[in-house]
C-alpha cells in the first residue's frame, strides 16, 4: 500500500475560496454570487478584492440561479455559492430550466454537503444532491476529496464551457493531494494499484478509503484505490480496467446509495462487465445532529465500513 501523508487538515470549502480568489485575479470574466453565506463559503477574499464582480443576493437562492444564468448571456462566468441543500433541491427547477436546459455556463458551488455539516442536523445535511444534479442532461458533477483538489477543481471548471455542480464540505480533512496536481474533469485518480479489490471513493470518503487500504494491507489484502472526483462524466475506462483486474468492487461516498456514485458505477458495470459490488453509502435515511465523526460512524461511512464491505465483496468473487 502506497503511503499517504499530510501535514495539515483543511476544509475543502477553503480550497474553493482560494481557487475562486485566484480566478478573480486571473480571469476578468469570473463573477461570483452568494446567498448570505459569504463567510461559510469562504468567498470573502473574492468579494473584497472584486466588489464590482461580486453579487450578494440575500437569502434568495432561486433568484441567484436566475441572475447567474442571465450573467452568462453577457459573457460572464458566474460561480454561485450557498450550502449544498440550497444549491440543488431548493432550486432544482431553476437549475433545470434556466441553466441546464438553456445550456448556460454557470458553476454551482455547494458547501456543507453531506453528514459532515454536523450539528445543524438533517434540514441542512443534503445526501441527495449528487443524484439530483447527475440526472440533469449535460450537467458535470464534481466532488473533490481535499483542499488542494477542491482548489484545483475550482480553477479548472472556469475553463470548461457548460454547467457544472461542484460539491465540497465543512470539516477539516487531511490535505494530501499534491498542490501542483492538475485537475482533469472526468479523469479518475489512481491512488493505489492493487489486485484484490477496487475501491472507488469520492469526496471525504477518499481519505477513509486510504485508511481502509492500510488496514486491508495489514490483513494481506491488496486494494486498488481510485479517487472518482468527477461523478459525471464518469471515467468509464478507469472503472472497467480496474474491475477487470480485481473482479470485485466497493464504492464509498457521503451520499444516499440511491443516485450516488455507487449507483453510477453499478449501472456501468451491469452493462459492460457484471462484477460483485458493495456500496458504502447512506441507506435511504436522513441524517441528524451530532459531530461529523460521530455521524460518519453512526451512518456507516467510516474506514471500518469500507474494510467490512471489502471482506464481504471478496467472498462474492466468482
Amino acid at each position: 500500500m502506497k503511503k499517504y501523508t499530510y501535514t495539515e487538515k483543511k476544509d475543502t470549502r477553503s480550497g474553493f475560496g482560494a481557487g475562486l480568489s485566484e480566478l478573480g485575479k486571473s480571469n476578468p470574466n469570473v463573477v461570483a454570487l452568494c446567498a448570505d453565506l459569504t463567510g461559510s463559503l469562504k468567498m470573502d477574499a473574492f468579494a473584497k478584492d472584486h466588489p464590482e464582480r461580486f453579487f450578494q443576493v440575500g437569502i434568495a437562492e432561486a433568484n441567484m440561479i436566475g441572475i447567474a444564468a442571465g450573467l452568462t448571456i453577457g459573457g460572464k462566468i458566474p460561480f454561485t455559492g450557498t450550502f449544498a441543500n440550497f444549491s440543488t433541491g431548493r432550486v432544482y427547477d431553476q437549475i433545470r430550466q434556466s441553466v441546464a436546459y438553456s445550456g448556460k455556463n454557470v458553476k454551482i458551488c455547494a458547501s456543507h454537503a453531506g453528514l459532515t455539516l454536523g450539528e445543524d442536523g438533517a434540514t441542512h445535511q443534503i445526501l441527495e444532491d449528487l443524484g439530483l444534479m447527475k440526472m440533469l442532461p449535460g450537467m458535470v458533477v464534481i466532488n473533490p476529496c481535499d483542499y488542494n483538489q477542491t482548489k484545483a477543481a475550482t480553477i479548472a471548471i472556469a475553463n470548461y464551457e457548460g454547467p457544472v455542480y461542484l460539491r465540497f464540505g465543512r470539516p477539516s480533512v487531511p490535505n494530501f493531494t499534491p498542490a501542483d496536481q492538475k485537475f482533469e474533469i472526468g479523469k479518475a485518480v489512481i491512488l493505489n494499484e492493487g489486485v484484490d479489490v477496487s475501491i472507488f471513493a469520492t469526496g471525504h470518503l477518499v481519505w477513509k478509503a486510504i485508511e481502509a487500504g492500510e488496514q486491508l494491507a495489514a490483513m494481506g489484502i491488496n486494494a486498488e484505490i481510485i479517487n472518482i472526483h468527477t461523478i459525471k462524466p464518469l471515467d468509464n475506462s478507469a472503472v472497467i480496467t480496474s474491475a477487470k483486474k480485481t473482479r470485485c468492487v466497493v464504492t464509498a461516498e457521503e451520499h444516499q446509495m440511491n443516485g450516488g456514485l455507487g449507483d453510477s458505477i453499478a449501472q456501468l458495470l451491469a452493462r459492460e462487465l457484471p462484477t460483485p459490488i458493495e456500496m458504502v453509502a447512506v441507506h435511504d435515511s436522513f441524517g441528524e445532529s451530532g459531530t461529523p465523526d460521530q455521524l460518519m460512524v453512526k451512518y456507516g461511512l467510516d474506514a471500518v465500513n469500507i474494510v467490512e464491505a471489502v471482506k464481504k465483496v471478496i467472498t462474492r468473487k466468482g
Binding site: 448571456i73 431553476q94 430550466q97
Partner: peptide, 27 residues
C-alpha cells in the same frame, strides 16, 4: 431566443443577470 422559459417566474431574475452583465461590460 436567449433563455428557455415555460416554467414560470424565472425570467425577471435572468433579465437582471443580463442587465448586470451589460453594466459590467459598459454596454
Amino acid at each position: 431566443v436567449r433563455i428557455a422559459s415555460g416554467s414560470l417566474g424565472q425570467g425577471l431574475s435572468v433579465g437582471i443577470g443580463a442587465a448586470l452583465a451589460k453594466k459590467l461590460n459598459n454596454d
